[in-house]
């Protein structure tokens, strides 16, 4: 599955992307030199802990950075059908059209993403009317269709207020709303976090279904390895604002090469797998305001040498489509 996915052309790429924002303590170097491709029709999971830069990267793909956020350098290229657009140099007006129509995002907290005083229909109409080419009637028809596709009772849900829906229903409505304008790419930030398990399973199955039926390319942002194991064709591990390892899902889970990916996998229990002892990674994730020298993982790494303190490794190939940023892995 992942082999074929990687053979298609990229639909979205970042090239040496550097993003930062300011907080009280200084400059947060949230994304540091990320070059990554999303291939047409694939599911790419960005895995990382809090402060790894994964959400900033996700938001930058539709140019929704936090207030103080800025692009220091690099580009984000969208290539849906041979033509190439640099997302970072588009006008605000063009960008407004571009979001939801080409790339849509499903945000983390499903309750906060809604306007609490508007019925679902109004939220649907709000999303559609900002873009031309769809009448009220068409919008309603499309909305009902999508709600149905996401296994909701369309006529009831479209008349409801957000608070009248359960967490799982709201999450499904959000996904439906994101699909209104037929985007080619869907970015999902922690799509199953905070949902109960039976609902999580349902959302996972639905994401699989809409991806096939609507021919979508997907990016998942999550701290949860199990979501990547479920849905991803390829997985990228992010640490301190960089991709430290990327590869096909099975390589990442069964043959991880970066000590951080290895550590993450050894830290997560399974329910039905054989019992194995688990380990944590010593230390804590680095401060993005005050990053360590050299390899950003060296302070927590049992393979670190003098070189790791001084020099930051490059992302280099170690297998078919499998890249690692580590001196000891090559």
């Amino acid at each position: 599955m992942q082999a074929t996915a990687t053979k298609t052309a990229p639909i979205l790429s970042t090239r040496d992307l550097w993003l930062e924002y300011s907080n009280r303590r200084g400059t947060v170097k949230a994304v540091r030199g990320i070059t990554i491709d999303l291939y047409r029709g694939e599911s790419l999971a960005l895995i990382g802990e809090s402060g790894s830069g994964k959400t900033t990267l996700g938001l930058s793909l539709i140019r929704l950075l936090p207030g103080s956020g800025r692009v220091r350098s690099g580009s984000i290229l969208y290539e849906p059908d041979g033509r190439t657009q640099d997302i970072l140099s588009m006008s605000e007006e063009a960008m407004r059209r571009f979001r939801w129509q080409e790339i849509a995002m499903v945000f983390q907290s499903a309750l906060n993403a809604f306007n609490p005083v508007l019925r679902i229909w109004d939220q649907i109409y709000d999303t559609v009317k900002a873009h031309d080419g769809m009448s009220k009637q068409e919008a309603r028809k499309r909305g009902l269709e999508l709600l149905k596709m996401l296994q909701l009772d369309p006529e009831r849900v479209i008349r409801s207020y957000p608070h009248e829906l359960s967490g799982g229903m709201r999450q499904r409505v959000l996904i439906a709303v994101s699909l209104l304008l037929n985007p080619k790419i869907l970015i999902l930030d922690e799509p199953t976090t905070a949902l109960d398990i039976l609902t999580q399973r349902n959302i996972i199955d639905l994401l699989r279904k809409i991806k096939t039926e609507l021919d979508l390319s997907m990016v998942f942002i999550s701290h949860d390895l199990s979501l990547a194991a479920e849905l991803a064709d390829r997985v990228a591990t992010m640490y301190a604002g960089s991709v430290v390892e990327i590869g096909p899902v099975n390589d990442m889970f069964y043959r991880p090469r970066h000590p951080y990916t290895v550590g993450l996998i050894k830290a997560v229990p399974t329910v039905t797998g054989d019992y194995r002892e688990l380990f944590s990674i010593p230390g804590s994730p680095p401060d993005l305001v005050d990053l360590p020298s050299g390899c950003k993982f060296h302070e927590r790494c049992d393979r670190a040498t003098k070189r790791c303190h001084e020099e930051e490794p490059e992302l280099v190939p170690v297998g078919d489509g499998h890249y690692v940023r580590c001196f000891s892995a090559t």
Binding site: I197, R201, I204, S226, A229, V249, N250, V268, V271, G273
Partner: peptide, 19 residues
Amino acid sequence: ALLLAIPEADPEITRHKQT
């Protein structure tokens, strides 16, 4: 239902679950 629904951090296990 819970045990069969839980996504697990192992692609082989989790993709072959009969929910």
